[in-house]
Design a protein around this nucleic acid. Structure first.
Lengths: 157, 157
DNA sequence: GATAAGTACATGACATGTCAACCATATTCG
DNA sequence: CGAATATGGTTGACATGTCATGTACTTATC
């Protein structure tokens, strides 16, 4: 059924997008949990740290990059620290600051999880799409993200 | 940066998609909360009920349709019932069963919230895309959802 | 250099979601 | 029939996320 708010093409795009996200997210979460002890949140944090040149980030820039609230990231880090995946460090030039660093265990864990996770991403999404669709998805995201990034006020807490 | 797991086009599509979702979701959530007392979860439940011919659903089929666990929906319904948005009812032919029905208050609430919400959906996504992009997004979702719907085991709890 | 204002992060209380039982009713099958 | 099993839904304990606030340090202002 198409609502009176969107025409047929719009409605198909919107509902499809919502449904795709729901299904994909639950599938990737499940696959990841099955072979790694990591949640998607854990994975995202670890992979951001692993991509950094010195394997560490200040808390605030990391939160901004991930579009998470500082509070959410702080809680997440505390939990991950207790599992030995990351460590908090003080920062030289700023006594308030804290940095999160990847531990050896964290590095091993993300290294072990990544091939499987990326295979799942391929299997359940990327490999199903042709180059034109991939390019268009990239375009769509660019437009939407560009628009939202503009008038975006900082996220809370 | 592109990882060694995805080529440039794939990486752009994948990261863009993730980022788009994060930003869009937080924006729509905020907009909706600002003019309606509803969370996205509340809105989805109400709008599914409102779309049904008799304004009610059995719990299990509704959970399946929304791709929620029964448990999640059950908790959600309890909370919404306490706010007067929905009501639980017994079912005639099955003593185990329960149905969720829209209350007058629930109907008023969703009716009041929908124009603003759909305007936000347009403003932050749909109206930013041209017809070709919308059609392609619909295609993409169809492929991915079709693939996942196949091997999908029922969701838990 | 003291006080005010701002920044970085953490915390606690509460809302929401998940997972594993649990209950009650239905169905199957000897 | 009556026992075993399946189904629909709920619940409680726990994990995760949000919001408002607290705390410690830094910067600005005079």
């Amino acid at each position: 059924m198409t609502s009176r708010w969107l025409d047929e093409t719009e409605d198909r795009a919107w509902r499809g997008y919502r449904r795709m996200f729901t299904l994909l997210e639950s599938r990737l979460t499940r696959d990841l949990a099955e072979d790694s002890e990591l949640s998607m949140a854990d994975y995202t944090v670890l992979s951001n740290l692993a991509e950094a040149k010195d394997r560490r980030w200040r808390v605030k820039p990391l939160a901004e990059r991930m579009q998470w609230s500082q509070s959410r990231l702080s809680h997440q880090i505390r939990r991950m620290e207790s599992r030995g995946l990351v460590a908090r460090e003080q920062v030289e030039d700023d006594g308030r600051g804290a940095a999160v660093a990847l531990t050896t265990h964290g590095l091993k864990t993300i290294a072990a999880a990544t091939p499987g996770h990326m295979a799942a991403v391929r299997k359940h999404m990327i490999d199903l799409l042709d180059p034109h669709q991939l390019a268009t998805l990239g375009d769509i995201a660019e437009v939407v993200v560009g628009h939202l990034a503009d008038d975006e006020t900082p996220i809370g807490g």
